[in-house]
Computed example of a mutant assay.
Amino acid sequence: MSQPTERTPERPAGRAVPTSADVARLAGVSRATVSYVLNNTSAVRISEPTRRRVREAAEELGYVPHAAARSLRAGHSRMVLLPTSHVPVGPLYSQFFNEFQWALRRLDYTVVQYGSVGLEAEEAARAWAELRPVAVVSLGEVQLTGQGVEILKRSGARAVITLGTRAVEGTHALVMDQGKVGEVATAHLVASGRRRIGVVIPEEPGLAMFSGPRLDGARRAVAGTGATVVPLPLRYEEESANELAARWRDLGLDAVFGYNDEYAMLLMRALQDAGIAVPGETAVVGADDLLLGRLLRPRLSTVRIDMVLGRELAELVDRAVREPEVPPRTRALLDSRVVRRESS
């Protein structure tokens, strides 16, 4: 008795995968025209009625271009790899990432987020290189090295861009001065007459690359002033905030820089519930200048951060891909200034 053969799960039984030739026949055009239209090629002029006919045929047949085949024709992929480990949370960064990915899509790139939890340095670079991206945009939590950058470029990556707190050899580096955020917030509190200042250190994973430099900046701001800085570990939970507020007077603090607006609002509510007057007994400053902070009572003082726009970063990626021979550059980012409101 013959054994039954196994059917591969690549496609439903009896259903052929549509090809560009099928689209060309249905639309009454050449395969080259189908390729030009569906790959958004601007070098060839094609009338709008023809473009519409090709798109309608592709939609009717359920055809989509094959990314790997397109990469072979072009000599490189259109994939921009965005490694993620513990992505920073918050509306400011969410808005930035959404704008960045949308801008890349308009430039005809495919954005792929790659989970990188547990990977370090060269190990991470090798894992990313396996996907053969045309560009990698690293957010800094996985600390790339010069050797890791070389691994990526040898695999075909035309551009490696880092967005973090330090420059990386061989990359287009956008360096964010996170220390300035903590420094200007704390300097504002010192100038307001506060002398024992708490600095919130979030306990959530992935935020140390921001909170550490901000704490260092706060310490720079109090140097030589007679004021002191007290690190305050805090989870983004009501219970944690309430526990901290319950021992506030024992800590003897008269001000707090809340890391960002979200942590500052969480702690400010807990302080108020514990009977601690804001700003009378304790001044509070956040960062990011979120709308919600302006709706509180008292309105939240904050640090306004001018980040690179997602559109600008997407344009940098595109230039670096098109001009891989241009030497990498380091650019400083993150101008920070205090917006004083009622909480301080």
Rank of each mutant, 00 (worst) to 15 (best):
M307N: 14
F100P: 00
V137G: 05
A167D: 05
V256D: 03
L334D: 06
R25P: 00
V111T: 15
H86C: 07
V321H: 08
E56V: 09
E6S: 09
S343Q: 07
I201S: 10
P327Y: 09
T145D: 03
A185E: 02
E122V: 11
R196I: 01
L313P: 00
E59T: 07
L253Q: 01
K180R: 15
V317R: 02
V175Y: 06
S138G: 01
P324M: 08
A264H: 02
T33V: 12
R319G: 09
Y114N: 06
E262V: 15
L61W: 11
E315A: 15
D250V: 04
L292K: 06
I276T: 04
V229T: 12
R322Q: 09
Q178C: 13
L26Q: 11
V308L: 15
M268Q: 09
E56P: 00
P205F: 04
T165W: 03
R11H: 13
L72M: 14
P324V: 04
V175P: 00
E237G: 10
A270Q: 05
G224M: 03
T162D: 07
P4N: 14
H76N: 11
R166F: 04
R196E: 02
E56A: 13
M307G: 13
E281Y: 05
L82C: 06
G286M: 03
G164H: 06
I161H: 03
A187H: 03
L300C: 08
E60S: 09
Q178H: 15
F97G: 01
R219A: 10
I46E: 13
V112F: 09
N39H: 14
S344W: 01
I276K: 01
T41W: 06
S2E: 12
V134T: 10
S94R: 06
D108R: 13
T282K: 03
D108I: 04
V278E: 08
G226S: 04
G90S: 09
L291T: 14
S116T: 12
A157G: 03
V37L: 05
R154I: 00
S192Q: 09
E150L: 02
L131T: 12
V17A: 10
L144S: 04
R247C: 05
N98H: 11
R31K: 11
Q3R: 13
E312N: 13
T228P: 00
E243Y: 08
G118P: 00
V112Y: 08
A191P: 01
A173I: 02
E169I: 03
L119N: 10
R194V: 03
E312G: 14
R214P: 08
H188M: 04
L313S: 10
Q113V: 12
L266T: 04
G179H: 12
P279W: 05
R51W: 10
A314H: 07
H86P: 00
S35W: 13
S211I: 02
T8R: 15
V190Q: 01
V326L: 03
P18E: 15
R196V: 03
E130V: 02
A24F: 07
R78W: 07
H76G: 08
R311I: 08
V160W: 02
V338A: 02
L309T: 10
S116C: 04
F96Y: 08
Q113N: 14
A16D: 14
E6M: 07
R31T: 12
D108N: 14
T33G: 10
